[in-house]
Structures are given as C-alpha cells and as structure tokens.
C-alpha cells in the first residue's frame, strides 16, 4: 500500500464519502445523486462500465473504497459530457469520474494496465514537458505503452493510418526532433508545481 493511501485510510477510516468529498475533483457533489441512472444510460461506453457513475456514487456512500478506487470504470469516460448535460441534479459527473481516476492513480490503486490510465499519464507528461502536445511522440509512446512486442504489433496495425497522416502532412517526422513547444517552459513548470502543492494542501485542510 502506498504511503499516501495508508495516510488516507487512516485519516478517513470508514468515511469514504468524506474522503471523496475532500480529495476528488467535484467530489462534494457525490452526495447529491438521487440514483436515477440517467448518466449510466447516457454514456457512449456504457456497456463497458463495470459500475456506472450512479452506482459508483452509491458505492462511495456505502463505503466501498477498495472496489471503487481499483475499478476500471471511471477510466471509461470519453468526456462526451452527455451525463453532465442530462443529470437532473447537475452533478459534474465527467469531472467526478476524471477526479476519481486521478485520485485512484495517485493512491496507486488504479489498475496498472488500464490502457486509458497509461495513455492519460503519457499525455500529461508529453504536454507538460514542452508545454504543447507532441502527437508523434505521443503516438509512439502509446504503441509501446504495453511493452515492446505489443508496441510493434500495434504500430504495424496503425501503420497505414500513420502513413496517411504523414502523407497529408498532418503528422510531421520533425516532431521527433524537438517539434513544437512553448518558450517559457520554466514558468509553466513553476506554475504547475505550485498548483500541485496548493491542491495537496487544500485536501489536507478539508474537514467535513
């Protein structure tokens, strides 16, 4: 168990709802769900959710910490915002799902091989490095995120698509050699570091 996870377990004991409220993006909204299920029915990836959002909310209230945080479900969010648009209680469900995913990942509870988890982290690292997303590097990293052999297979499968993109000048090999980026990366990194610090401090401050 990660130290952070350990600390959270001790801090909140059985009150998972409170833990979520304090630590998860828009987590204070979880208590407002009335179990209508419109979110569950609205999700384009619905069938792939082991637990749909509304059920996750109920599980949070029921204190099913382990089950929720190790679930692959919230990694199924495509950010289509259908659930938000339709929720009768105006719960920012998309953000809560992102928030839960992020929190689970930080605690080290998210399933290691969940592809979206890996991709999302790759993406973040990719963009924060130079301030802008590098599609080629991201793509290559993506192919190899499940290991070298898998990566070759995926790359082959994607070969034609990649070629098409090169052909139409919508993917540039120049990107490998540095590519786009912002000038003030230092400033950006300082901002992100500070933001992370404030966020952690806020979660610690939260009480009830």
């Amino acid at each position: 168990m990660s130290t952070m996870n350990q600390a959270k377990v001790e801090k909140y004991r059985n009150d998972f709802l409170k833990e979520v409220t304090a630590n998860v993006e828009e987590g204070e909204w979880v208590k407002m769900c009335m179990q209508c299920g419109v979110c569950a029915g609205s999700c384009p990836f619905g069938p792939y959710w082991e637990h749909p959002p509304q059920e996750i909310f109920m599980m949070i209230r029921a204190g099913k910490r382990e089950e929720v945080l190790t679930s692959t479900s919230m990694w199924m969010c495509t950010s289509c915002y259908n659930c938000i648009a339709r929720c009768p209680r105006e719960l920012p469900i998309t953000h809560i799902m992102h928030g839960l995913a992020h929190y689970a990942d930080r605690l080290g509870l998210a399933p290691k091989n969940q592809p979206t988890r890996k991709f999302a982290n790759l993406f973040w690292n990719n963009l924060t490095k130079k301030g802008r997303a590098n599609e080629l590097k991201l793509g290559i990293a993506l192919y190899f995120m499940n290991g070298f052999i898998e990566g070759i297979k995926t790359a082959l499968k994607m070969q034609k698509m990649g070629l098409n993109m090169f052909k139409t000048k919508r993917l540039s090999p120049m990107e490998l050699l540095g590519g786009h980026g912002i000038k003030d990366t230092g400033g950006l990194h300082a901002i992100l570091k500070k933001a992370r610090e404030i966020e952690l401090a806020n979660a610690e401050k939260f009480n009830g």
């Binding site: 179990q35 209508c36 299920g37 419109v38 569950a40 029915g41 619905g46 069938p47 637990h51 749909p52 509304q54 059920e55």
Partner: peptide, 11 residues
Amino acid sequence: LHGVNTEGYHR
C-alpha cells in the same frame, strides 16, 4: 428507450 435499471444495474 435507452437507459439503465439502477436496481442492480441492468442496461
């Protein structure tokens, strides 16, 4: 009609 029966999660 598309949706989920929330009593036990049935799509």
